[in-house]
Nucleic acid binder design. Sequence first.
DNA 1: GTCACAAAATGACAAGTTGTCAAAAATGGG
DNA 2: CCCATTTTTGACAACTTGTCATTTTGTGAC
Lengths: 237, 237
Amino acid sequence: MLTTLTRKERERQQREAKILQLARGMLRESGYLGLSMDRIAAEMEYSKGTIYQHFRNKEEIILALANEALEARIELFEQAATWPGNTRERISAIGAAAEEFVERYPHYFAVEQIVRSSSIWEKTSDERQQFMRSCEQRCMQIISGIVRDALAHGDLTMPKNRAPEDLVFGLWSLNFGSYIIMASSNSLGEVGIGDPVAALRDNQSFMLDGYGWRPFSHEADYPALMDRVRREVFSDE
Amino acid sequence: MLTTLTRKERERQQREAKILQLARGMLRESGYLGLSMDRIAAEMEYSKGTIYQHFRNKEEIILALANEALEARIELFEQAATWPGNTRERISAIGAAAEEFVERYPHYFAVEQIVRSSSIWEKTSDERQQFMRSCEQRCMQIISGIVRDALAHGDLTMPKNRAPEDLVFGLWSLNFGSYIIMASSNSLGEVGIGDPVAALRDNQSFMLDGYGWRPFSHEADYPALMDRVRREVFSDE
DNA sequence: GTCACAAAATGACAAGTTGTCAAAAATGGG
DNA sequence: CCCATTTTTGACAACTTGTCATTTTGTGAC
């Protein structure tokens, strides 16, 4: 009896994973409109009704994909935050984690873009919304924690009227904006941006330099550190 | 004959403007899915076929809205670029223009987000795509022009392996990312970001400081300058 | 084996979308 | 007034998503 229950449960989870896998593919292939419940059902060789027993609607599938990725991102960020070095090195490690995340979950930015598109968010369940918000907060906490450590250690002093979260907002928007532009602009080279990932690294560094976060980027080789973090922390699993 | 032609032409343009106006409203109200050709037709008291004579499809309407706004943005940026001051002041004036743009075209970021969503872009006409790309390039040129002036005047020296466009990419993504997040995150206050617009101003300034662009933000009152630019340059029309 | 009952899967449907196109209506020159 | 040309129309086809009565499947008791 126990075994049958778990077998069913296992089948259910497998099916759910398969749905998400198919959805990921469709989304990558042709965006929000390309994700079709009919086609998922057809490719799964199940009826539509069964798919709807897993996800109340299309938007739930998309949010589930986002949740999956965000959970993994927190994992990466937490690992990065424990890097044994000064605060400026630790914030660089977070940058490395962000790069790693983009490589492991290349579909995520497309998903987040869809979720942030009004009228999608509204259709999703409270639980998944809650989960997404909590992931966002958790991310914020991890990073602003490093900022606070830097303040405590005297590596950084906050400018007038600015909170640590304002700095995090800067890193966040710089990253988010850069990756969205990279993902959706097929001709960055033509406008003179040859290596956007390297440019992002530098822009982040210079922003932190501007805040006065020591040691400055000319005093250490942060790109090398980021490569090292990615090799040593994120190479396996 | 000439008069009848122009009258017709005038009516056509008025109708087109009305379509775009309605579309703007629907888009702001409820996003891409909320924009319905049927509803536009109904509210215009024209049949659907007539609407389709103006725009080949839904996506064309969205791109038309983007084009409208981008044209206006170039206007604003060009005005800002002529500000009579040092290069650092001129790049701040561009920041002021960007703020002004967001206030005048609050729907634009939602539109750009939709356009950047894959499978939307593909459905639009080459002409409008071309126009959008040329606007983007033009913007890039205006700003990288100021960067080059700064290099020529010795206000700034480019770091190793970086082109002026990489700096512009930084400002671009910082702005774009910040405004997208602001527009779609209804609870920034809860995560500790009280005044995101002020934070964006500072983050931009600090990034430019990090690049070593003189005079530094602690040597001048750039926020005050931006307020002044907005008052003196963008108050009328 | 078979019966009864619960659980799960089904697909026809309703209600919506976009985009088309033959037919109807308006227009304007002769 | 008439007729060629342009413009407008809305019924359609072809697609969505999401529902739910009906059918199928699974389980345990006898």
